[in-house]
């Protein structure tokens, strides 16, 4: 089936089998391997991307269902010149990642959280990040990173971070 996806602002036309998940279409058909797959049945959150601005599990959505929609993936967080998004910087500084398997999903979940709720407290961050599993960090660094990025983003709007 022929579909159109706008991923991080770029329009792509592709031809996919109906059972192709959005996660597989991004990774296999578009080569955007930043979106990770862990469980492939909705439990771990590694595949979280934004669909028209809303967080979704890319392993629970068929690519044909996203036809005509906008998708934001972790590749779209940094600026084109490679400058990291404040969340990415904070994950690095606060040791919010070790192996990195969960990180793209963590970042997209956190990006959505801070878009709708710019200054969540640590308890809110824990509650909202609870749908993303990490086998390495013990989560403390992740909560630190989201809290720290929220502070940075409040003072430094997206456009002029460098």
């Amino acid at each position: 089936m022929r579909i159109t996806l706008t991923v991080n602002g770029d329009r792509h036309r592709l031809d996919v089998e109906p059972r192709r998940t959005l996660a597989d279409a991004l990774r296999e058909d578009l080569g955007l391997t930043g979106t990770h797959l862990g469980c492939e049945h909705g439990v771990c959150g590694a595949c979280t991307v934004l669909l028209d601005g809303e967080p979704v599990r890319a392993c629970l959505l068929f690519a044909v269902q996203a036809d005509g929609c906008g998708v934001d993936t972790v590749e779209g967080l940094a600026t084109p010149d490679g400058t990291l998004h404040p969340l990415q910087e904070a994950f690095s500084v606060c040791h919010g990642l070790q192996c990195g398997a969960c990180t793209p999903g963590m970042l997209m979940t956190a990006a959505h959280l801070l878009a709708v709720e710019p200054s969540p407290d640590r308890e809110r961050i824990r509650a909202e990040m609870a749908g993303n599993l990490c086998r390495c960090t013990g989560y403390v660094g992740i909560v630190d990173a989201v809290a720290s990025a929220a502070g940075v983003m409040a003072w430094r709007p997206r456009e002029d971070h460098d």
Binding site: G42, L51, E54, P55, V56, R57, T109, E128, A130, G131
Partner: peptide
Amino acid sequence: IGHAAIRSR
């Protein structure tokens, strides 16, 4: 119910 990514779908 679940998490934000579950509730949005």
